[in-house]
Design a protein around this nucleic acid. Structure first.
Length: 585
RNA sequence: GGGAUCGUAGUUCAGUUGGUUAGAACGCCGGCCUGUCAAGCCGGAGGUCGAGAGUUCGAGUCUCUUCGGUCCCGCCA
């Protein structure tokens, strides 16, 4: 092999007549009898190399046999392309390398799909041959963007005096929250480690240890089902700070987010980021992660349906609506699709009316008198050609269902400006949610989240009305970070465990080390964790988390390339003292 | 756990009401070609129609079961 003197993205007109060596993959071959053009590719770019049977000293027949993805080492001379032969699509398009000698470093078997066209194979095939898919421009770009994001985060936080500290990957299983991945212990039969759902407990302990400002870019593991934006192992930017309140978190993390967007994709985010409370977000957008790039607000229309003859909404406690500009074009079929769509969110149905010539038609309009129609049109600012969708039910059904419809309609209509990036803090989350199945309160964020100061005396009397000091950072309808001010008082921490139905003994057994640590001088502290993969998804414009992870798993938690998970030998199981139960069927 | 959807050549797809020998493009193999950049032209090979069962004179097509991919609900403190 002749070691490269330049990468395939490097050569320009100024290099003309230089003698160079290039190493890379054959991207494309264009064979013209006595002259052969090859685009040679590496991660830096592509350079056209030319074999001319008159000048080429080696075996020209061997060159004719080259095919896509063969690996070459070539030596040649840079020459300017003639005027008509310049390729304006390539940075190296003004030159080419006339090859004098070539070595085939590695021959490629027939390819399962074409590297230059990512759409040339379905995803399962691409995942099986992930190493080939990673050669595509798109994934090379995504992985580079991910790298830039790591570096931007480390630079910013380090400059702000944050310290990077690693925490264990083998830890104790803790209750609450997601299902743990478990790792059996060989030395202690019958005992298990858990992989961390997050380094939550460790980072709080680090605050108690006095590290003051901590961060870590860290893998977390949750054994739950997948989505387009969820993998069982994923990466967080984990942050914790001492002697601070919410405002310190907001200003530092806004600074981090602005820095990342500027460094990685040269986008200026607003300063400061806007904020909304959880209750406002739910009532206006029907979501705790509102996409504010478009309006389509949810409106309370209960007073109108009360005055109508439409009785189905009379007994429900919430009736809300969204007005879709220009939505009167929706056919019955499309409205039926929307109805099916909201039924996924437990809505019983979807009522609608269209605005035409200053009045409402179709759907449930016949139940509304002329005056009532005019009132409704005026209040909701409907114009002719608009449609209004109405839904009545419990508030906890209407808002999420209509919120989901809002997002779906915006997607269909392309309402979101693809170039806009709208960050938004969501604050004032409820402290607890009541879990019907377990018949107890569960923490909406996690059990270490501090309640709002002014709500502390309601913890005993009315826990459902207590708000927490938790906060989420959302961007374009994605939750990109979430955190809270933590409890630093042992007394309040024990009280919260009590409300969550954890007895003193259970709490001690599960979280004893943290509770004990809280008694040895815990500073007020709080923190946040960014979903790193989702952040990179947004930075690359991807709509799938697999596109920003080098080796992702399928929705059934399998890695098609290396075939994990898989069986292990009897000997391995014996060492661990594990016996596999036979399948039920 | 549930729902939707997809599975036909190496790959992406087409395949009518169930009916002759399952087609196209790209890739692959062979040939022609000295200025292409999605090179072009000519020829060729390549199929367990995801798997299994059923209905039928006859199944890529209809039914059932099953496996796998994707998306969603539940779940994800």
């Amino acid at each position: 092999m002749k070691k490269r003197t330049h990468t395939c993205g490097k050569l320009r007109k100024k290099n003309v007549s230089e003698s160079v060596n290039l190493n890379g993959w054959v991207n494309t071959v264009r064979l013209h009898g006595q002259v052969i053009f090859i685009d040679l590719r590496d991660r830096y770019g592509k350079t056209q190399i030319v074999f001319n049977s008159e000048d080429y000293k080696g075996d020209f027949e061997a060159v004719k046999k080259l095919s896509m993805e063969d690996v070459l080492s070539v030596r040649g001379t840079v020459q300017a392309r003639s005027e008509g032969a310049v390729n304006p699509d390539l940075p190296t398009g003004e030159i080419e390398v006339l090859v004098e000698s070539m070595e085939l470093l590695s021959e490629t078997a027939p390819l399962p799909f074409i590297i230059t066209d990512r759409d040339s194979a379905l995803e399962d095939l691409r995942l099986k041959y992930r190493y080939l898919e990673l050669r595509t421009d798109e994934l090379q770009h995504n992985i580079m963007t991910r790298h830039k994001t790591y570096q931007a985060v480390r630079k910013y936080l380090t400059d702000q005096d944050f310290i990077e500290i690693e925490t264990p990957t083998l830890m104790k299983s803790t209750p609450e929250g997601a299902r743990d991945f478990l790792v059996p212990s060989r030395i202690h039969h019958g005992k298990f480690y858990a992989l961390p759902q997050s380094p939550q407990l460790y980072k709080q302990i680090l605050m108690i240890s006095g590290f003051d400002r901590y961060f870590q870019i860290v893998k977390c593991f949750r054994d739950e089902d997948f989505r387009a934006d969820r993998q069982p192992e994923f990466t967080q930017i984990d942050v914790e700070m001492s002697f601070i309140d919410e405002e310190d978190i907001f200003s530092n993390m806004e600074g981090l987010t602005r820095h990342v967007f500027k460094e990685v994709i040269n986008v200026d985010l607003p300063d400061p980021f806007p904020r909304i409370t959880y209750d406002e977000a739910m009532s206006q957008y029907g979501s705790d992660k509102p996409d504010t790039r478009y309006e389509l607000f949810l409106r309370n229309v209960k007073e109108f349906t009360e005055r109508s003859d439409f009785n189905a909404f009379k007994s429900v406690d919430s009736v809300k609506a969204i007005v879709v500009p220009d939505g009167a074009k929706y056919s019955r079929k499309i409205i039926d699709e929307f109805t099916d769509y909201v039924k996924k969110y437990k809505a019983k149905g979807l009522a609608w009316m269209k605005a035409e010539a200053g009045q409402l038609t179709g759907g449930i309009s016949k139940f509304f008198s002329g005056d009532l129609q005019k009132d409704l049109i005026k209040t909701t600012n409907m114009n002719d050609g608009d449609i209004i969708f109405l839904m009545g039910d419990k508030r906890s059904i209407v808002e999420p269902a209509l919120g989901a419809l809002r997002v779906e309609i915006a997607r269909r209509e392309g309402l979101a400006d693809k170039k806009a990036f709208n960050p938004l803090w969501v604050t004032h989350f409820p402290m607890f949610e009541f879990n019907e199945e377990e018949n107890r309160y569960v923490a909406m964020h996690h059990p270490f989240t501090a309640p709002m100061e002014e709500d502390i005396d309601k913890l005993d009397s009315d826990p459902a009305s207590v708000y927490s000091r938790g906060y989420d950072l959302t961007l374009n309808g994605h939750e990109i970070a979430g955190g809270s001010i933590r409890i630093h008082s042992q007394k309040i921490q024990e009280k919260i465990f009590g409300i969550l139905g954890l007895s003193r003994d259970e709490a001690k057994e599960k979280f004893g080390f943290l509770v004990e640590a809280l008694t040895y001088g815990a500073p007020p502290h709080g923190g946040i964790a960014f979903g790193f993969d989702r952040l990179v998804m947004i930075l690359t414009g991807s709509n799938n988390i697999r596109d920003v992870i080098a080796f992702p798993k399928t929705t059934s938690a399998v890695s098609l390339m290396d075939e994990a998970p898989n069986t292990v030998s009897k000997q391995q199981l014996d060492e661990l003292g594990i016996q596999i139960k036979p399948d039920k069927n």
